[in-house]
Design a protein around this nucleic acid. Structure first.
Lengths: 320, 320
DNA sequence: CTGAAGACTGCAATCAGTTGCAGTAAACAA
DNA sequence: TTGTTTACTGCAACTGATTGCAGTCTTCAG
């Protein structure tokens, strides 16, 4: 039905191996022959069958990308950049989300493993041990999770958290809440650790929470009860949910309580009050992860974060 | 290196064809043999090589999904649902975005075509002719584009546009702007056509526009000049951009001008003022498209839309 | 007791490319 | 003139699974 290498070989009077070589190792075939074969291939509209190729070579030119939540705008930007990077190098990108579920994550890795050259794992929730085990059968790049010996791209969230806290302290806040993300999240742990080390700031930890708007709304009551004037949330969605929930309780943001998010997503940038947030280089991370995978380099890359101050933070009341 | 059907066959004392059948046609093999083979396969951690399978069968169990913009939240929900639907049936999903570029769209279709069993094309910008041509070599499901003879899932945007306009009319608005989307967009055309048929409402068309926040900001000036009290925008992002732009010009929403979007995205739902918008069933569309593709049914499916009234619309000034 | 049907199972060709090896011809060196 | 190198090109085995066909063994009817 579809045109194969054999059809092209026949139509151009050469052996199949020559046709194969004009595509996969052009320098090995005579220039004249090559142009003839290419012309015939073009005319017959020949396209190599990737299944056959990868059967023989063991390489697929496919990459898998697994994220906790496809609908989270942070991951959308990451995916967009990753896809563009993959495409530039003639790779195709599978995507899947785990719904924050570690066992689904493992399932997906196993399902992908025979069909890709590598997997970009974003914010994996599996244990170190499980990941190390799995990395024996398929190559990984981890995004926002640091494990010795595995290739990683991480964002410096600890730095971001410190700067965010300094911003709050600078405004005069003394007692703040840290609203953490999902239990298995490495970044959430990093932020928590970084905040714990900051002197002179009284930080209460509220979490774990699902990293969604709903999670934020649910956490708002506990924030209100905690007697804090500032909040650092695990991500923008959670921050927005907290603001929604707080305002429903009659607490004004930033009048009564200041709120800072993480991500610098479009949703947060457009929200009112415009969200003060720690910018995370999602696109750069997606691009780098794919490039590292394709070059099959192993490296630990750290990407910088920075604070974007907008309208959801202000001095605490009575500081006038 | 990796364990094949042959290893399993050898270890369980049967021929490879029997192992093959225990996986792809279990009813053809003796129950006892089957359990033994499955046990051995499990123990050796055997996983079928999809490349080999698809080489022989011609089916890949992969689906391609092409959207204009991966970062647009409307498509994020669609992708999430599509991925879940695919996964339920042991299919994997490739994604790619065209950046609103028709020629890139064609490139992607061609690149995918040898590697998938079908492609879900969301809001394609290619011409009918080009799409019909391409549909000869790979099967499609079109989302939000109606072409005779091709399988489609469309949302009833015309109905949504009418209801939105009635809402504005009901509030007392008489002169409104229709801010359209990209030039090649079928839905944008549908909305425009539907609005043109509404009697007693003076509608000026502003467009085409890139369907992004930036596009909306850019269009805001023309909206302000048009002397309208109401706006219907092609999507939520555009609507939000318009509001941003309008407010920068000192025009209050909804005080001076009411704005309605399309999509009911999270971004719009969370925005302040909370966006009045036409809800589009993105998830349902993604799910249906994938299901239609896998069942390889051809059908034209219409999904309902409805208006969600929030805070970005109000009576025009002077109606008190 | 024979024949036929049914239930498995094995054999081997096949899918569409890739690649190590060998063969050929021309170019070049001695 | 002969030997050697270089540049292609062809041959055929190989990748891992699928599947039509044929063979074996029971089982059961007549």
């Amino acid at each position: 039905m579809s045109v194969t290498i054999r059809d092209v070989a026949h139509a151009s009077g050469v052996h199949v191996s020559t046709v194969s070589r004009t595509f996969s190792a052009p320098h090995l075939v005579n220039a004249e022959t090559r142009t003839r074969v290419l012309a015939v291939a073009e005319e017959l509209d020949y396209r190599p069958n990737r299944a056959a190729r990868s059967l023989k070579t063991g390489r697929t030119n496919n990459i898998g990308l697994i994220v906790p939540d496809l609908a989270n705008p942070f991951f959308s930007s990451l995916i967009k950049a990753a896809q563009a990077a993959a495409r530039r190098q003639d790779y195709h990108l599978f995507v899947a989300d785990t719904d924050e579920n570690p066992s689904e994550e493992e399932e997906l890795i196993l399902a992908f493993s025979k069909q890709v050259d590598g997997i970009v794992l974003c914010g994996p929730r599996l244990s170190n041990k499980a990941l190390e085990k799995l990395s024996e059968s398929v190559s990984f790049v981890l995004v926002n999770r640091l494990i010795r010996g595995l290739t990683t791209v991480v964002m410096d969230v600890a730095h971001g958290a410190r700067v965010a806290m300094e911003h709050l302290a600078g405004l005069g806040h003394r007692r703040v809440a840290l609203v953490t993300g999902p239990a298995g999240s490495w970044t959430s742990g990093e932020i928590r650790r970084a905040v714990a080390e900051i002197p002179g700031l009284d930080a209460v930890v509220i979490g774990p929470n699902p990293p969604t708007e709903e999670g934020g709304i649910a956490a708002a009551a506990r924030v209100a009860e905690a007697g804090v004037t500032g909040v650092l949330a695990y991500n923008d969605l959670l921050a927005i949910g907290i603001i929604e929930g707080l305002e429903a309780l009659g607490v004004d943001v930033p009048g009564d309580v200041s709120v800072i998010g993480f991500d610098d997503s479009a949703t947060g940038r457009l929200y009112r009050p415009k969200l003060t947030t720690v910018a995370m280089p999602a696109g750069a991370a997606g691009r780098m992860a794919v490039d590292l995978l394709i070059q099959s380099m192993s490296a630990a890359t750290v990407l910088e974060t920075h604070l974007v101050v907008r309208d959801s933070t202000a001095p605490p009341k009575g500081t006038a």
